[in-house]
Design a protein around this nucleic acid. Structure first.
Lengths: 208, 208
DNA sequence: ATGAAACTGAACTGGCCAGTTTATAATCGT
DNA sequence: ACGATTATAAACTGGCCAGTTCAGTTTCAT
């Protein structure tokens, strides 16, 4: 009613509990599929308590995605080993990225974001900023150093980074989002990552 | 009730009409968001008629996706000019692919498939088979001919095709699915496609 | 023109769910 | 230990929607 009331109350004993339960249920069932009763139950909290923290289901959902994106961003920081040669660093980053986006959690959050970013425009943006963009920035930073060291030759850094990320998704990503496979063998991952590195070096490597 | 009844009746004057209305509403609102009343209204048909063709909403939805995938597959047949040089053929295919997956319709169907392929395992599979796989097969075919002509050197054809497809999505795809951009300028597309071709040739081209 | 098949519209059932309310109980600072 | 804050359980409101039913109308083949 009162627009000033439409804010999340972050203080209170069970705030975290609510968020945790919401996370669990939203990730499992999506926004529409999740019922507030289920969330309250999963959180071990009464519905009234839940509504005392979050004015409505939408804001609760947004908050879950926001907090999860922050977590994901922290994981992504490990991506690059800045001093290594391109072959080594890219291989490492490639395997790390594949592991991240094939993880059960990433699959779920991606699915939910894609599904709901029509109804929640700010949601897609938030995920994009704190997910893919973080990895890209990190990779770009590495590429710049490698170019400075004369190990690579690149004009459009952002594009190069995006290309490498994209190459690491070849085959795997499509099979994943369409539910053909839920997870992959080491060999399947290796096939893609090694080929991604080879291709990247072939294009941007400097002749020795 | 009777399991034999759980089949789609394809004969009847208004079958196509129903499918058309369903297509429109499902694409706009997704599976959960679309109400059968809306679909019947959009189709210019009574709800009873709709249910005389389709035993339930799920099967109607599946049928819409199936038929739309077939349409998409036919568009994709135009992708390759088999006799052209890699530079020319890949450029052409790249622009065509970008146009396809940035189209309003592809965006919608992708969104819906990703969202619902948890609840409808066979849906993701169907889309995968009649969408991405068709393009990949077509491209693989071209690559084999180019290799036979000595214009390229490739071991893993399927992977090479997937890599090229993936390269054409760099930057654009993420911005699209997360709703950052709904469409792109010629320059944005050119930046990605030209870079994709350059990279592919750098890796698989034969020295002249 | 006539009878069968297809279609209509509207009402109805049963179920689910977001959000509210209320009376009661647990928890906490002081 | 007491008053205020916070939490609870359960019932309730109002709304939406999938799927059914039915009495009556249109369409079409013969």
């Amino acid at each position: 009613m009162d627009p000033a009331t439409k804010t999340i109350i972050r203080t209170g004993r069970k705030f975290e509990q609510v968020l945790l339960g919401a996370r669990k249920v939203f990730m499992a069932d999506g926004f529409e599929g999740a019922s507030v009763d289920d969330i309250a139950k999963a959180a071990g909290v009464s519905k009234a308590t839940l509504y005392s923290y979050f004015p409505d289901k939408r804001l609760l959902f947004m908050e879950v995605v926001r907090s999860e994106c922050l977590r994901q961003a922290e994981d992504a920081v490990e991506l690059a080993d800045f001093d290594a040669s391109p072959q080594v660093a890219l291989r490492f980053a490639g395997y790390a990225m594949v592991d991240i986006f094939t993880s059960d959690f990433s699959q779920r959050i991606f699915r939910v974001c894609v599904a709901e970013s029509d109804r929640f425009p700010e949601l897609g943006w938030e995920f994009y900023q704190s997910g893919p963009m973080v990895g890209r920035a990190r990779l770009t930073e590495y590429l710049k150093q490698a170019v400075a060291r004369g190990e690579l030759k690149i004009d459009d850094f952002a594009l190069a980074a995006d290309q490498f990320v994209e190459l690491c998704k070849a085959d795997l990503f499509a099979r994943m989002v369409f539910g053909i496979n839920r997870d992959f063998t080491k060999a399947e991952k290796a096939r893609v990552v090694e080929a991604a590195v080879d291709m990247f070096i072939a294009r941007y490597g400097v002749a020795p």
